[in-house]
Every structure is written in C-alpha cells, then in structure tokens.
Design a protein around this nucleic acid. Structure first.
Length: 465
RNA sequence: GAGGUAGUAGCUCAGUAGGUUAGAGCGUCGGAUUGUGGUUCCGAAGGUCGAGGGUUCGAGACCCUUUUACCUCCCCA
C-alpha cells in the first residue's frame, strides 16, 4: 500500500517544525506581553455549537465526525432515517453530533459562557491551535491549519482595539515582515452605507461585493451589485462611497474619515462607527512604537466574511508577497449571546500561521540558526573513549548545551558526513591520543579549524557562541 | 460545491505520429580515503510511468472512472 495523507494536510519535517515554532513563539511572546492568558479547547465540539455560526458557506465547510456504533442493529433504523435527512442536506444527530473545530472564536465564546462564574472580566485569552475546514485546498489554503487568536471579552473600551492593532504590528515587526498593512474599517460604517443608499436589508450583498474591489475593480463591483439585485440609485450612492476610499492618501486617515462622515451624515450608526475609528486611532497613536514600519490604513471597502462582527474590523496583508490576508479580526457585540449569555462584548484578532510561514519562506526571513538544535556531536571512533564521552555529554547538557554522541562506531567519514548533513556546528573528536591527553579535538564545521581543548574550555567556548 | 491544468526514480524533469529491456541531472548508497565532512573521481541501487478499468496485435502516451497537487470561482487564514 502506498502511504498518503488526507487532502489539504501536511507533514512537518524537523526544519519545518522549528520554523513554525519560531513563528508561534514570537506571536506567543507578544500575546503574553500584552497580558493575554493561554487557553486550549478540544479539537472537536458538539456540532450544535458550531452550526449556524459561520453562515451558510461556513456550515458547509465544517468537518463532521461520524457517530460510532451505527452498525449496531438497535441503531440501524435511526441511522437510516438520519441518513435520509443528511441526503436532503440536513444534519441529524442520529448520524453525526460532533465536528472538528472550524475556528477558535466560537469555541472561546462557548468556553466563556460555560465558565462565566470563574472568570475575571474583562477576560483576555490567547489560543494557538489547529482548526479544520473542508475547503478545496489551494496555495495558502489548507484543510488543517493553525490559528493564533487573542480576544478580550467583557469590555467595550476601544483601548482593546488599539492594543490589538499594536499586537499585530509588534508581532510582524519581530518577524521582520516588510510591507505590512493593517487595514481597518467599522461594520457600523458599512451598515450606515446600506441604510443611506436605501438598501439596508442588502448589507451582506453590499459588503461582499465592495470587499472585492481590489480584485475586480469598480466596474466589477458595480456589476456584482446589479447581479445581487441592487438598483441604480443604490449603486450610484455606493459608488460615491467607494470614491472616498480612492480620493485620499492611504494614511490620510482624518480627511478620509471626515469625507465619510459627510457622505453618511444621515446615519447615526455610521457616525458612531466613524467616531469609534477616530478614537481607536487616537489610542493607538499613543501606544505605538516608532520602530514599527507597518502602517494602519482606514479602508472602507474592507468587509470580512464572518457575520458576527459588529464594530471595528481589521485585516492584515503584506505587499511583499502575493497572498491573501495573513490575519484578521474584529469586534462582536453579542457573541456569547448565542450561548445564552447576553450583553458581553468581545474583540479579537487572529494570525494565520500557515500563511505567515509561506510569506517568511518566500522572502527568506527565517533566522539561519533555526537549522539544528544540537551544538556539538562527538564522533565515536575509540572504544576506550566511551566512558569519558558520556561524562562530557553530562557536563555539556548540565551546562545547557545540546550535545550528542554518534552511537554506532562506524567509519569516521560517515560520522562526519552525518554531522555535516545535520548542520551541527561543532564536532568533538576523542581518539586514542586525545584520550591520553585528556582533551577534546574540537572541529568548527564552518571554518574547518580544529583545536584541542579541555572539557571546561570547550563548555566555555560553546556557551558564548 | 463548480470549472481548468497536471501527476514518469527520493527531488526537478525529458520521453519524437501509440512500437523491443523507460532516460538525464541532482540526491542516496558503496569505493578511492579503516583519524576528518562540505570539493573531486569511479561504481551501484532505485520506477507495477498516481490508482482502477477500457480501446489496440501492442499504451507512459488515446478514452472513462477515481485520487492527489496547483490555478480560477465561491469563500476564507
């Protein structure tokens, strides 16, 4: 049988894992720095927890888990009727009642509701775990991928928004990704647009269409709006809305906000949204670090799919690589309401680790020293030396230096080749003569230089390198 | 979920209008070199041509099905 793995999944070889851990650790460090606490939830949730939370499209992409025991004769009738319902496109607990998690936000909301009495609100947590989607794989799109989320619930303050934007910028600064743009918008402005253009009920159609303007241009958006049933009057208003976006420089926030406030003066919702954007930017300005090269862009065409967002929405892209967004988030006023806990507002962001990986790879931004963990390997050429080498290993490891011994006594050059292939920077050679001298012949694999050292000197050399 | 392109050695690929035992480079392994890797030289192994079925005297090539990757749409990280 030819081995294979499921569509859209990947193996991660040692070098891949090190690189992924580098990303994960960098992001984790920033989360911790901003006072977020770690949380983990199960890989699978009850199907009812997930269904209906991501829109129709989302429901279709949830990986469902088949119930056990379907072949038990006493379940047969139930399973058969359940299967009939599934064929009709419905779910039935007789066949499946669990599913793999689709994102980290809904499980988080579920967690908050279940543990509301133990938590100190505002509750800030971060979560870094894989999620699964039955999407068709493409470049940068997998069926199993990791998300890194930071959310805070129980606070409506825009300080949270401002800090989350800071987390994005700090993390990408540390990862040294160039061309980072954190685009922000407010769902309230979009709702105001729908109101003002006379098609309040078509909010989703409008947002889905204008979100594509980067891809299909103004003409394309207009066509799509027609297709989605908007009339000429609606569309001409939306066109004016879109022109505000292109009229000002990318970072001329204030002019853009002012123009938008003028256009949407009839909508109280939109005015609130604009005021919130202003306040978020003002807070963020005080929190930001001058070293950050990324920029914040107010982008009124930004929509984002997940329909639970109600306030600020954000998305991260880099101009350095052709790739979809590498992060996104927003505020949701009533996420926990879905699980019976009303009045808790939350806001959060997510990092797309797998896409960030692809970006770093493409730009060659991974630090070189991620290659190997082992600092020194002892070649095994002299049987008498083994007890001494064990002692050296113990001392090196006690000093925190990753060290290993080539376990099999095979040909010298084979052992050297192994060290070379593993990218281990130093080789320790102890043969008969070194044994007699009580020293180690230390070879620097990069320069090829060798020198004889005592173990204490060797530890000193490797500690500082 | 809809459409398109592709799948030949571990990797990157070649393979003439269907015609003997399917090739190259890189890598792997062995040797030159039983105390010195990354360079060099010599040699070897490695493929039921993604899988299944069909057309044909004959299929890596043509047809169908299936699977996987990539691209577009949908949607999204």
């Amino acid at each position: 049988m030819k081995p294979s793995i499921p569509q859209g999944t990947r193996d991660f070889s040692p070098a891949d894992v090190r690189r992924r851990q580098y990303i994960l650790q960098t992001i984790r460090g920033v989360f911790e720095l901003y006072g977020y606490q770690p949380l983990e939830t199960p890989s699978m949730e009850n199907l009812s927890t997930l269904m209906g939370k991501y829109g129709e499209e989302g429901d279709r992409l949830i990986f469902k888990i088949l119930n056990n025991g379907l072949n038990d004769p006493k379940n047969a009738a139930k399973a058969k009727t359940a299967f009939e319902r599934v064929l009709e496109g419905k779910n039935d607990p007789g066949l499946t009642e669990r599913a793999l998690r689709y994102d980290l936000t809904i499980p988080f909301a579920r967690y908050v509701v279940m543990h509301q009495n133990e938590l100190a609100f505002p509750f800030r947590r971060y979560q870094m775990q894989p999620v699964w989607r039955a999407d068709r794989p493409q470049k940068g799109r997998y069926r199993e991928f990791w998300q890194c989320d930071a959310d805070v619930v129980g606070s409506t303050s825009l300080v949270n928004e401002a800090e989350l934007l800071g987390i994005y910028r700090e993390a990408f600064h540390r990862l040294q990704v160039p061309g980072i743009e954190v685009r922000i918008n407010s769902r309230k402005v979009l709702a105001g647009l729908a109101e003002c253009c006379g098609a309040a009920e078509a909010l989703t159609d409008i947002t889905v269409a204008i979100d594509k303007i980067d891809k299909i241009g103004l003409d394309g958006v207009q066509k799509e709006l027609v297709q989605r049933g908007l009339d000429e009057e609606n569309i001409s208003y939306i066109t004016r809305f879109l022109s505000i976006q292109s009229e000002y420089g990318a970072t001329d926030h204030e002019s853009r906000l002012e123009a938008m406030a003028g256009l949407l003066s009839q909508s109280e919702t939109a005015q609130t949204g604009i005021a919130e954007l202003r306040q978020t930017l003002a807070y963020h300005k005080q929190l930001q670090n001058d070293a950050w090269t990324s920029r914040i862009v107010v982008d009124f065409t930004l929509a984002r799919g997940l329909n639970y967002y109600t306030g600020l929405i954000a998305e991260v892209t880099t101009s350095a690589v052709k790739m979809g967004s590498i992060g996104g988030g927003g505020r949701y006023d009533d996420l926990t309401g879905l699980f019976g806990l009303k009045g808790l507002s939350g806001v959060g962001i997510s990092f797309g680790v797998d896409r960030i990986y692809d970006v770093l790879e493409e730009l060659g931004l991974f630090p070189a020293q991620l290659a190997s963990g082992t600092r020194i390997i002892f070649v095994n050429i002299e049987p008498q030396a083994e007890p001494v080498l064990f002692g050296y290993l113990n001392q090196l490891r006690a000093a925190g230096i990753p060290a290993e011994l080539y376990a099999d006594r095979v040909k010298f050059d084979k052992q050297m080749k192994y060290a070379d292939k593993r990218n281990i920077p130093y080789v320790g050679i102890v043969g008969a003569s070194e044994l007699e001298e009580g020293r180690i012949n230390l070879k620097d694999m990069q320069s090829g230089e060798q020198r004889k050292l005592e173990i204490n000197e060797l530890i000193a050399v490797l500690s500082q390198a």
